[in-house]
Amino acid sequence: MSKSVLFSVNQTLKKCFQSLENNQKVWNSVLSECKPLMVSLGNLEEQLRAFQKVQIANTPLHTFPDLHQRLHFKLIQAVDIVLGKLTDKMCSLQSVRDAISNQVSGAFQLYEQNIGSLDLATCTQRSPVAPSIADMLEWLQDAERYYRQQFLRRKNLLLTLRADDLSLLETAPKRWESLETPSGEESISESPLAAITDVSLSG
């Protein structure tokens, strides 16, 4: 087993965690940009619901021609605009997910290429200051899976939304929020951050 192989694997893993950390920041900032959009979606749902309950013909607005159709159109249009913006945000999330997937699969590729010179003992060897290669690969896989699933769940939620289905719109902000799993986020944050400092110590 050559030391240089071990060194390059460790270096790659280190880089991987560093980029994971950066990508996580991007991911979180995109998600925070989605929040106000989700709030406006909820507001629009309220407005549409109130609009459905009110018979304009029985209100002081009855003298205005086509008001019902015109306002309905404007509200639906506003929903469409918000949904369009959210779809744009999904593209950003997708590119974060792709970046993470590429990095992780690159790390695994390097590991598999050098599998001959990395025996089981080396891969599972931990020290007080550094996790084992096996541990780090596992964490990377966990993180990759987390972002993959998160992306699919969020995208799936958005795809089901329609401007004319109020019950779906009404629950959307809550369902969107419930997709945030603090435990999943934490488990990713803790292990890579620990790994970065540890690997840098041992490297």
């Binding site: 309220e46 407005q47 609009f51 002081p60 086509d66 008001l67 404007k74 509200l75």
Partner: peptide
């Protein structure tokens, strides 16, 4: 019309419709 009615409406749904009308301006398309 909205200005006249807004403060005198007790029906929250109608108030909401007034607000939508104000914000989304149905006649300037």
């Amino acid at each position: 019309a909205i200005l006249q009615e807004l403060a005198h409406t007790t029906n929250p749904d109608l108030s909401m419709v007034y607000l939508s009308c104000w914000l989304y301006q149905p006649y300037t398309d």
